[in-house]
């Protein structure tokens, strides 16, 4: 049974008489201990999708519909109290910009303890402090970080603090929103290895949101490619990377160089994201697609399900 199952999720931002369709009809499943990388260019709805699952988007402007089923409960409809119980204990998040992920004028340790106490109300002070020191050790940080402030740590250290924070209650699912994007490659490599290690040890499922194909290729089992709020391709990383089925995925893969193998031409995808506040009749990628045909302009492509759980949203899917 799937750990998390997203069914026909839509997110619409309502701003200044405009409706921006940030996430459109997205469905996929995550199994226990799965690791899923969500890739796509900026503005493709990756972060919106992740934040909407935990209802963290501002209620006044974001309208979320569809279902997010986590262990038989629909996260979009359960009460605030029930949701608060699931937050962090079952699903935790490592946010973008971890440099600002904690209050600058409170000690890191006291904030960590505060978050710990939310789901372990009876824990004694000494117990909490022990647990925090353990957690810091887990992500290779010295215990003195406990009494330090955010501005005294480097970006990489704060990233580790954020990861320690997310591991606190042994959640079943961690959402990493661009968790390593701001780091240099060496620190990123270290942290990614640590994450993989911890995941195996603590049996955690992970959703990894990133621009970086290589991060997904190295650390994830499955990949979801998003474009303009649509899930255009989904499947096992090995399948998708070796045989991309959607023209956008192909374009995305061509935009990254390979270290091994022949020297190829590095190509981007020309054009930019379409205006998400206007309705598109045909395929959303049609205007930038190098392989477009007559039907792409008129008809919205459906999601084609291929072997091995592969999903592709394209008229020509499976025909090649």
């Amino acid at each position: 049974m799937a750990l998390l199952s997203i069914k026909n999720e839509n997110v619409i931002y309502k701003v200044k008489n405009k409706n921006i369709h940030a996430v459109n009809n997205v469905s996929f499943d995550i199994e226990p201990q799965d690791s899923l990388g969500i890739v796509g260019e900026s503005g493709s709805g990756k972060s919106t999708l992740a934040l909407s699952m935990l209802r963290l988007l501002p209620k006044k402007i974001a309208e979320v519909s569809g279902e997010v089923i986590f262990e038989d409960r629909n996260l979009l409809t359960i009460s605030e109290d029930e949701l608060r119980d699931i937050r962090w204990k079952e699903i935790s998040v490592v946010f973008q910009k971890s440099m600002n992920s904690l209050s600058p004028i409170h000690k890191i340790g006291s904030q960590m303890s505060d978050i710990y106490m939310l789901h372990n109300k009876t824990a004694s002070k000494a117990e909490v402090k022990n647990k925090m020191t353990e957690l810091l050790e887990l992500v290779n940080l010295p215990p003195r970080v406990y009494t330090m402030y955010q501005h005294e740590l480097s970006g990489g250290m704060m990233q580790r603090v954020s990861i320690a924070l997310s591991l606190m209650h042994n959640p079943k699912l961690i959402i990493m929103d661009e968790a390593t994007t701001a780091l240099d490659v060496i620190t990123q490599g270290q942290i990614l290895n640590e994450i993989k290690e911890l995941e195996k040890r603590l049996s955690i499922a992970r959703i990894m949101i990133t621009h970086d194909m290589s991060v997904v290729a190295n650390t994830c089992k499955k990949i979801a490619v998003m474009y303009a709020g649509y899930l255009v391709e989904f499947g096992y990383v090995d399948d998708v990377i070796s045989n991309p089925n959607h023209p956008y995925t192909r374009g995305l893969l061509k935009s990254f160089p390979t270290l091994k193998g022949e020297r190829g031409v590095l190509r981007g995808i020309s054009g930019s994201l379409p205006d998400l506040s206007v309705q598109h009749d045909g395929c959303i990628f049609e205007s930038r697609c190098p392989e477009r045909s007559e039907s792409c302009h008129k008809e919205k492509p459906g999601t084609v399900i291929l072997e091995n759980g592969r999903m592709v949203m394209c008229h020509s899917a499976g025909r090649r």
Partner: peptide
């Protein structure tokens, strides 16, 4: 609207 407020909200703080 600071980022750390989202952290506490996501952690289930009231």
């Amino acid at each position: 609207s600071e980022d750390f407020i989202t952290t506490f909200r996501a952690a289930g703080m009231k």
